[in-house]
Design a protein around this nucleic acid. Sequence first.
DNA 1: CTGGGGATGGGGCCC
DNA 2: CGGGCCCCATCCCCA
Length: 282
Amino acid sequence: MPRSFLVKKPSSTRAPNYGQLETRRQEINGACHSCGGLVFPILIPNDSVPSTPWDSSSLIARVSLPLPSDGDTPSTDPRNREISLVDTLTGQAPGTPLKDKRNNLNLPHRRPSDPGSPAEGDRGARDKVQGGQDRAAEPLERFECFDCRKSYHTFSGLAKHRQLHCLQARKYFNCKFCDKEYGSLGALKMHIRTHTLPCVCKICGKAFSRPWLLQGHIRTHTGEKPYSCSHCSRAFADRSNLRAHLQTHSDVKKYHCRACSKTFSRMSLLSRHEEVGCCPGS
DNA sequence: CTGGGGATGGGGCCC
DNA sequence: CGGGCCCCATCCCCA
C-alpha cells in the first residue's frame, strides 16, 4: 500500500535522549573498511551486563593483544581495564597506546603479571576468552579469526582477513538484549530504543521507545483527541484507533471468517472467533 | 462470547 | 542517517 498520506507537522524540538546509547558506544572503536561492520575485539568479563546494545560477536575477531613493551600507566577505571581495542582505521599498531577518540582517552594495555595490577582481577575473563590458556606461557601473540580460527601474526593481517568475511557474508547487526538481527545499523539503533526507552513522560515517568509514542501517551493525560470520526461524534487520541472505529461503521468488515463468512472489524476479533471453535475444520 | 475502545509496540517509508 | 510519520498488529479491559 502506498504511503502517500504523510502529513507534515511542525517538527518537534525535543531531542531524543541517546545518553544510554552514547555511553555504550564508547566501548566500540572501529568498523570494517569494506562494509562498516564492527571488527574490533571487545573483551567482556561480565556476561550478565551487555556492554554494547548491539552484538558484534558475529563480526569481531577473537584476538590476543600484544602487551606493551614498556610501562604503561595502569588505568584506575575498572571499565577501561576490561576493554582492549585497536583502531585499524588509523593503522595504529597493537603495541602502541590505544586511544578512545570519542572520549579522548588512552585505553590501557594490561600486564597480567603485574602484582597488584588492576588487570589481575579480570585474569579469569581474559583466560576464558582465550580458551583458558595461560598467557604467560604463550611465546607469541596470535590474532585469531573468530569465525574460521585462522590466525595471523599481525592485527592488520587479521583485519584484512576479516574484510573478506564481511564481503562474503551479508552483514548483520545483532541486538545484545534480545538477539534480534538487522541488516543495517540504523534499523538496529531503532530497535535498541525499545530496550533503552529514552522517551520518558514527565507526568507519570513512563518510558517509551520513540517520541511519537510518548506523544500519544501524553494525550492520555491531557485528554486530547485530535482524530474524530466523520460518521459519529466520537473522537480518538490515536489514529489507528479511529481507523478501527471506522470499521464499525462499515457494512463490509475488513476481516472475514473463511468458514462461516462472518465479518469482523478487527483481526483480533476474527482470531478470537476462530479460536473459540467456529472453524473446526480450518 | 462478542464487540469495541484504549494504549502501545514495531517495522517501513519519506523527508 | 536520523527524525517523523504511517500502518498494522496486539494486548488489555469493559460493556
